[in-house]
Design a binder for these strands. Structure first.
Length: 970
RNA sequence: GCCGGUGUGGCGGAACUGGCAGACGCAGCGGAUUCAAAAUCCGCCGCCCCCUAAAGGCUUGCAGGUUCGAUUCCUGUCACCGGCACCA
């Protein structure tokens, strides 16, 4: 250890200054390089590896890995990372094997956009950003097992991303078993049963009579990863598909280029098949209520009926989905989405007005539709028959009916649906009341939605439900529909299948090729990874039809089946093929990274099954079982593998839903052992910042504001008063805090403590640089308590103080309890209180007469270690605890057990109890802790202040809560 | 519009299961130390009334309710934040 450089003065060379803190932190971090030169930090061996301790239970704690941007770490990143680091260090001390990995989510749009702007290849910028992020995270001293690090852009990793996609491609969802199975099983069954299938052109044919292509097309319709058609926002000028929020008034947000909505063949995931299981299994995980609600709503299950309406003029029947089949007598017209096949057929019959409307509506973006909910529409000229009333009702098209939901067609019941009512009013269509709701009269002025009793719903020739309550009426109608063969019970979801293709360069290529006829063939697993070809020009292609950037790599795209690695049994090796040029979206890599960490370097499997089982599968505490379960058992095992997953709530729906879907597919296929990926999920709050606002609500950048006096701010240029408000950190407001600067000013331990001390982990809270000094002073004071600032030697009390010993036990107990609750702010407050209580007065003649003993200091260092590890390790080493791990990493407290709090020290002999009269405190009473209610009551009534306060009034009632308070009612 | 969350001193926040509101930190004020300052140590610090103190009154967004007792439970209401948004 080198002599510490000290800022000011020579007399206190061991004062805990920023420079001293930085020096000792960096010294500890240097000592974490492995002797073998292979890596850095703590290593957690897997079962079967050297140094693995099978007697310890496992704890898998995961951070949402970051997307490394050129801007470096934001102060929001270390918030969650510090929290998990505290938990992991604590669990380590409590005797767990702790898996705490880190990696990089590195494919995706932002890197590519940046590359297009700067002309530097995304691989170069991304790797640079990763190096910077890694440097910053190490500087915080996080206890990651860096031997498990990887990035989603590593071919060794995305090889398996592609492999998992192929697993989905080679599978189908068996609705009877409600799970995925290999598509080979479906094929075998179809062959065995010689099933009759629908073939192109609408005919039906036996399996044995089908051509190879017909069979293939049939199977393709079942795959979990399938080629489907979706309407997308295509911007020809930008050469890419845009997300809905990137389209404004039919033009691109960037550049204002025209955007057209066009159907595009894309790779999709059949996530809707899993809707029910994704919904049901939310009950098995310990997730924030809010997140479960969001996912539930996102999936949007609704029960109702599918009803087929006959259409005049030789048309196919029109199928609708409704949640209110009981209102069928009130269906006075029908509406189909502008994209509905019936509309194009109606246009073919020669309806110019309809053609015009449909063309207009189809090009209207979702954003526009939301901006104006004014009802627009056009009659198709076709008529349907209401099967309940027998009435002839018109079929309209309108863009308030969405092609993507249900069947893209509705029966309109204007009397009881607000949207239908508005439409009927706008186009003068019939409105018939068929539900009577208690207390809500139907006036014809507005729709009455809700449950009630059926009225005007009788037809002797069909069905009569008059008088039935809504629930019963629904049942009756559905039963009748089924009997008539024109409808059935149906469950519908808001969740859509997942569009998985992007017309982008910086993503995982699909391991799939096409022959000249457009049939697709998978690349065999053995030929993976299919690496992304290096492209000099990865900018988008301007075109009317989608041309992904990969299409420019002609030598890569145009190949042969053998060269591409297609199984010769599927396609002859010399067949010319073209590779898929779309790439996977940014979500792909994050859908399974938590699995890869279990055995990050396994070259033969996506995860080694033994490691996966060890880290992901465990018994529930209440099951009474220990050890690693042989396989998942719903009665005794946790549903989810990761014991704690911490990340922002912005990923509550999409990432967490997509990962669950992939996990369930892998579970069904027997590749993973748990039905859920994340057993417990926690969202850290957003770290905001102060910003300034003029009277007109416009914002002023922080560097243009001066504080004239305490809490009063003016805009420097104008002298106008501005209000201090809380806002997100942003470059434009100049209120972004750079972690590197804060560490330079105070050290990483202070940074960690500050973020944990700001408030509850889940709450959003404002960064206030002024407050950091509070926790810094705490560390300084703790340092001074333990170390002689002149010599650097330990400065301990000669003998323990009984009160401080008691307080230390309480602090140990509270800190442990608070860590388990993720309540770090109160844990830190407790440690501050301990240090304050133990602090010696300045200039104490004999310092060994005050403070904590060596033994007490060591216990304090241990509970501080999870929060401020460098500080605590330094102190631990000074106190004689030192060692070296198998990797050669110098350690102090890493292998130490969490100190025990003596339960006897947590209770007092005597407690102070307030005495209230009419709920107001009038006296305080010292009573023995074990005193019973009657004794306390007697003591209270005898107290002089109480007697005075009662002033002779009769006592009506005395409430005594032992150990808490006494309340006297007069 | 619908769903969810949050409102506590000048500021960040604390408070077990309905039981002493304001732990801890910041800022502020006073003192000790110092030639002086920084640093350190000690103390004060919700608001009102008041010369001061005592005593008293008020106080967890607002208005009610339940209760011996409410930051905590209930009803209504306002503000802010987040999500969804023509989903039939």
């Amino acid at each position: 250890m080198s002599a510490a450089p000290i800022a000011e003065g020579n007399e206190l060379p061991h004062r805990y200054t920023a420079a001293y803190a930085n020096a000792l932190e960096e010294r500890w971090q240097q000592s974490m390089r492995w002797n073998d030169g292979a890596g850095y930090g703590y290593r957690q061996p897997n079962p079967g590896e050297a140094g693995f301790d099978p007697t310890r239970p496992k704890y898998y704690c995961l951070d949402m890995f970051p997307y490394p941007s050129g801007a470096g770490l934001h102060v929001g990143h270390p918030e969650g990372y510090t929290a998990t680091d505290i938990i992991c260090r604590y669990k380590r001390m409590k005797g767990f094997n702790v898996l705490h990995p880190m990696g990089w989510d590195a494919f995706g749009l932002p890197a590519e956009q940046y590359a297009i702007q700067t002309g530097v290849h995304p691989e170069v910028t991304t790797k640079k950003a990763i190096d910077n992020f890694r440097r910053q995270l190490r500087r915080f001293g996080f206890m990651y097992d860096w031997s498990r690090e990887f990035a989603t852009i590593d071919p060794d990793y995305y090889r398996w991303t592609q492999w998992i996609w192929l697993q989905a491609y080679e599978s189908w969802f068996d609705p009877a078993a409600k799970r995925a199975r290999p598509i080979r099983e479906l094929e075998e069954r179809l062959a065995r049963e010689d099933a009759e299938i629908a073939v192109e052109g609408g005919a039906r044919r036996r399996w044995s009579a089908c051509s190879k292509r017909e069979r293939q097309l049939h199977l393709d319709g079942f795959r979990l990863a399938y080629l489907g058609t979706q309407t997308v926002n295509w911007c020809p000028k930008l050469g890419t598909v845009l997300a809905n929020e990137e389209v404004i008034d039919g033009r691109s947000e960037r550049g204002g280029h025209p955007v057209v909505r066009m159907p595009l063949k894309q790779w999709m995931f059949r996530i809707t098949a899993y809707a029910d299981r994704l919904l049901e299994d939310l009950a098995l995980v310990d997730w924030p209520e809010m997140t479960r609600t969001l996912q539930t709503e996102w999936i949007g299950r609704s029960e109702g009926a599918e009803i087929r309406f006959a259409v005049e003029g030789g048309e196919e029947p029109l199928t609708v989905f409704t949640t209110r089949p009981d209102t069928i007598f009130g269906a006075t017209y029908m509406v189909v989405a502008p994209e509905h096949a019936l509309v194009s057929r109606a246009i073919e019959r020669g309806n110019a007005e309809l053609a015009k409307y449909a063309a207009w509506a189809k090009n209207r973006s979702d954003i526009d539709r939301q901006a104006s909910k004014e009802k627009t529409g056009c009659a198709t000229g076709l008529f349907a028959v209401n099967p309940a009333t027998g009435a002839r009702i018109p079929v309209w098209t309108a863009d308030y009916v969405l092609m993507g939901y249900g069947t893209g067609a509705i029966m309109a019941v204007p009397a009881h649906d607000e949207r239908d009512f508005e439409f009927a009013k706008a186009f003068s269509l019939d409105i018939v009341q068929v539900v009577e709701i208690d207390g809500v009269p139907f006036t014809g002025e507005a729709a009455t939605a809700g449950e009630g009793r059926a009225v005007n719903s009788a037809n002797a020739a069909a069905i009569s439900i008059d008088g039935l309550a809504t629930a019963a009426a629904k049942k009756a109608v559905i039963a009748w529909l089924e009997k008539q063969g024109i409808g059935a019970l149906r469950v519908n979801y808001r969740l859509r299948d997942w569009l998985f293709s992007r017309q982008r360069y910086w993503g995982e290529p699909f391991p799939i090729v096409y022959d000249a006829d457009g049939n697709h063939y998978p690349v065999s697993a053995a030929s993976l990874p299919l690496t992304l070809p290096p492209l000099a020009d990865y900018s988008p292609v301007e075109s009317d039809t989608p041309q992904p950037p990969l299409a420019k790599a002609r030598e890569w795209t145009h190949t042969t089946a053998a060269a591409a690695g297609v199984d010769a049994a599927l396609l002859a090796g010399d067949t010319p093929v073209v590779r898929e040029t779309n790439t996977m979206p940014g979500w792909a890599g994050s859908c399974w990274y938590y699995l890869r960490y279990c055995s990050a370097k396994d070259a033969s499997r996506f995860v080694s099954s033994e490691a996966e089982r060890y880290w992901m599968l465990s018994h529930r505490a209440k099951s009474g079982k220990t050890g690693v379960p042989a396989q998942f058992d719903a009665a005794t095992c946790h549903a989810g593998g990761v014991d704690l997953y911490v990340g922002g709530s912005e990923h509550a729906v999409l990432h967490c839903l997509y990962a669950r879907f992939w996990h369930k597919v892998l579970f069904d296929l027997g590749h993973v052992s748990t039905p859920e990926p994340f057993g417990k999920l926690f969202h850290q709050g957003l770290i905001t910042s102060y910003a300034f606002q003029r009277a007109d609500k416009s914002l002023v950048p922080t560097d243009q504001v001066s504080e004239v006096k305490e809490g009063e701010f003016v805009e420097t240029a104008t002298g106008q008063k501005v209000a201090q408000i809380v806002a997100k950190m942003s470059k434009s407001l100049k209120n972004v805090v750079n972690p590197d600067d804060v560490i330079a000013d105070y050290g990483a331990d202070t940074f960690r403590l500050y973020e944990m001390y700001m408030g509850p982990l889940e709450a959003s809270k404002p960064w206030n640089t002024r407050d950091i000094v509070g926790v810094f002073r705490f560390l300084q004071r703790a340092w001074r308590l333990a170390v002689d600032e002149r010599t650097g030697e330990v400065l301990a009390a000669a003998a323990p103080d009984a009160k401080l010993e008691k307080l230390l036990h309480r602090t140990i107990h509270k800190v442990g309890e608070d860590i388990e609750k993720l309540s770090f702010n109160t844990a830190i407050a407790a440690m501050i209180e301990l240090v304050n209580a133990a602090t010696r007065p300045t200039g104490m003649a004999d310092p060994t007469q005050g403070g904590l003993t060596r033994d007490q200091l060591l216990r304090f260092a241990k509970i501080l270690w999870p929060f401020a590890p460098h500080f605590a390790d330094e102190l631990g080493a000074k106190l004689g605890v030192a060692g070296v791990t198998a990797e050669g990493v110098r350690i102090s407290l890493y292998d130490q057990p969490w100190p025990e709090a003596d339960p006897a020290m947590l209770v007092d002999d005597e407690v102070e109890m307030p005495v209230q009269i009419q709920g107001k405190i009038k006296a305080r009473l010292m009573v023995p802790a074990k005193a019973d209610a009657a004794a306390v009551e007697a003591l209270a009534l005898a107290h002089a202040d109480v007697v005075a306060a009662i002033a002779g009034r009769p006592v009506k009632k005395v409430v005594v809560v032992p150990g808490r308070m006494v309340n006297i009612v007069v």
